[in-house]
Amino acid sequence: MNLVWHIIRKDLRRLAWAYGAWAVAGGYLIVYRNLNIVQRSIWDNVGIVALFTFLALGIALIATVIQEDGLCGANEFWRTRPIAAGRLLTAKLVLVLASFAVIPMAFALALRPGQGGEFGAIGALSIYVLALAAVAACTKDLGQFLLVAVGCVMIAPALGGVLASVGPVGELTKPEAVSLSVTKIMLLHGIIGCAALGILINQYLTRRTRLSRWALATTVTVVALISGLWRWPLFG
C-alpha cells in the first residue's frame, strides 16, 4: 500500500499546479451554485469560465494521470521497474476516482444536504471518470485522447439517433416510456462502467492495446444500439 501512495504522491506532485487551478475553479462553482453569496449578475461570465475550466481541466487531468505512466508504447519508464501493473492500476484508480468523483461530489452534496440520490450521483460520476480513464489508457497522448473521447461522445448518440429513426416504432404509455428511459439509463451506465473497467484491467495487466481499442469501439456500438433500438422497459 505504501508504494501505491508513493505513486499517487508522484502524480500529485507532477500535476500540482493543474490540480490547484482545477480545485480553485471547482471551489468557485460550489460557492457560486450552492451558497448564493456572489451576485450572479456580476459573476456570470466568471462562472462560465470556471465551469469550462473545471470540466476541461478535469478531463485533461484524468487523461494525464493515466498517461503519465503510459500503456501504449514500448519505451515507458515504469515497465522496466519493479512496479506491478496491479499496483499501478490501483494507484491510478484511487487517484482519479477520489479526485474527480468522490471528493467533488461529496463537497457538492455536503453543501446541499437532503437532496437524496447521493450515492447514485457519485456512482454515475465514477462511471464517467472510469470511461475517460479507459480512453486515456488506450491512447498515447492528450491529443489522441481528446480525438477519441470526442469521437466516442459524438458517434454513440448520433448512431443511436439514426437507429431510433429507422427502428421499429411502438406505442408506449407514459409510465412505460418513463420506465424505458430509466431502463436505458441503467443499462447504458452498467455497460459503460463494465466496459471501462474491463479495458483498464486489460490495458494494465496484459497491455493488449489492440484488444482494448476493439472493446472501446464495440462499447460505442452497443451503446448506440441500446439507445436507438432498445424497446423493453425493465425498471420502473
Binding site: 503510459g70 508504447g73 519505451n75 519508464f77 522496466t80
Partner: peptide
C-alpha cells in the same frame, strides 16, 4: 535497464 529511447520522468 538503460535505453536511449526510454521515456524518463
Amino acid at each position: 535497464y538503460v535505453s536511449e529511447n526510454q521515456q524518463l520522468p
